[in-house]
Design a protein around this nucleic acid. Structure first.
Lengths: 304, 304
DNA sequence: TTGAAAGCGCTAACAC
DNA sequence: GTGTTAGCGCTTTCAA
């Protein structure tokens, strides 16, 4: 009980394999008589034919495979796991719509594992949570012409597209929802130092009013200094914790799960549906390899 | 600037492509002189050669690709997103160790999308959160001989391996941690009805003492009937909610993030590292296709 | 110890 | 409108 190939179909329908290929791929430049078309399609169905994408990929030099490479931080925090889970879901959903399949891989400092890009001939890559140094070490392994979209990082390299939540509008919105000037900021730590700096700047607060939170412990100590004061919190889980002692808070939902923010707390959510456009863009980059792929920023828009 | 092939290496080293293949794959049945081995390896390095797994797969009829197919429920709840995120991470990590790559796909009722298994010639598949009916419709698309491991489902089909947390020992442990008989159970909903029934049975509680929670709303109403009483809660997020009104609770950490359970609350965690053994088993199934692949249950063990 | 060559399943240029 | 065929990059049998 082996899988049927186009050869089997050809034999069954009494035509050549080329004809079968033309019909199955609906090749526009070929005219095919209705008679043979029907004959072939029927045979294909009977034999339960399904394309062998491995063989196809080898021939056409496009695999239809998109990679999602995710740097594993020291310890997967609930909030970052959730953030990336939802991001991955969004990417997968939209890739699927365009006929791509998605390879998922967690990578660490060891560059070599990222040679998956070349081994598997990925058509495009999303790179998540990477810092500048690691990026430099792994960029060797990038095939040329493979579009790379960097998520949650601010990589200094005009070759790559960058995707981040719209922090500028996010902070604006948070401030206006808060209705008063925030006096502190609590944020989760980012693998990418440049992005972390950018966020801090956008908050408009001095360094000493900002707490970068790597675990819940230090948080309460910091918060106690701001009892009763208004502030902004990055990510829903830290907000949950902060809510125990504070009530004048605005949350930026950087874990993409606004639904867990308690009723009544001011929240700013970002739109993961924007990945639809982003994936489309990647697709365009894949189609015309020579599309002017200038540095480009994508900001996930604030949901209002 | 094209990618180097073994042909390029052969030319550079002045040997045949067969020889190159032997050396790169370290074929045991071939003896190779040290001289040529060095020559070839050096050329490979210089040309930055990396195996074309697409071509290799076509030839050897093994892709080294494991699929994770995840049914999307109606609404991704935080808890199930997190549960599956962590499961996927565990699977990917252990697959990686054995040299496999992982394809991730969310699927819905439409069977056709699951023909990815045949299209991509997946070596093995993890199927998550599938119910009995859907399973039946998609099982047509399963290639024969492809090992399928079903996660969080209790599918009536001896052909497939099943993976669930060890609910039996989980409940035992919860009861003993609680130190008194639980009087109610709160649990999240499962796509797979059979599994849900199994869980209810294991709790040892009557149907009316069990609340299946699909959203936070109904929960508080149910809980108010059990004020001050001891109970068991399935999944950390529901526990967080229940903790607001109850303090004699034991939690089964079915979202695999025990770290968010408040201090002092009794919790039972399951060991995702067990996926190491599970993936090894899948690997064995892949190696000898004719390994007696009898129905098998894997229970993620309770962490003590 | 090495190499020639067949062929995995498919596409596409070209011939008929 | 249909068929022949070369070849994508690799593995592996068989011969040298």
């Amino acid at each position: 009980m082996k899988k049927a190939t186009i050869k089997d179909i050809a034999k069954a329908a009494g035509v050549s394999i080329a004809t079968v290929s033309y019909i199955l791929n609906d090749v526009k430049t070929q005219s095919i008589s209705d008679e043979t078309r029907v004959k072939v399609l029927k045979a294909a169905q009977q034999l339960k034919y399904v394309t062998n994408r491995t063989a196809q990929s080898l021939k056409v030099k496009k695999t239809g495979l998109i990679g999602i490479l995710c740097f594993k931080g020291k310890d997967g925090h609930v909030w970052s796991d959730l953030k990336y889970a939802r991001t991955i879901h969004a990417i997968e959903r939209h890739c699927s719509e365009l006929g791509y399949h998605v390879l998922f891989m967690q990578i660490d400092d060891l560059g070599p594992s990222s040679k998956i890009i070349m081994e598997r001939n990925l058509d495009g890559v999303f790179l998540m949570n990477v810092d500048q140094e690691r990026f430099t070490t792994i960029s060797h392994y990038f095939g040329f012409g493979v579009p790379v979209f960097v998520v949650d990082s601010y990589i200094e390299d005009p070759l790559f597209h960058k995707i981040v939540p719209d922090f500028v509008r996010g902070f604006q919105t948070a401030r206006s929802l808060l209705g008063e000037a925030p006096q502190f900021l609590v944020m989760d730590s980012y693998n990418n130092a440049e992005l972390a700096e950018f966020i801090k700047r956008q908050s408009g607060l001095d360094e000493e009013r900002i707490h970068v939170c790597d675990s819940i412990e230090g948080l309460n100590e910091f918060l106690s200094a701001y009892a009763g004061r208004p502030g902004i919190v990055l990510n829903e889980f830290l907000a949950l914790e902060a809510a125990k002692t504070h009530n004048r808070l605005a949350v930026l939902c950087t874990s993409y799960c606004p639904e867990i923010v308690p009723q009544g707390m001011a929240k700013v959510a970002f739109d993961l549906n924007d990945y639809k456009e982003i994936v489309r863009m990647m697709d365009r980059n894949i189609q015309d390899a020579d599309e002017v792929s200038r540095e480009k920023f994508y900001c996930l828009s604030v949901i209002t």
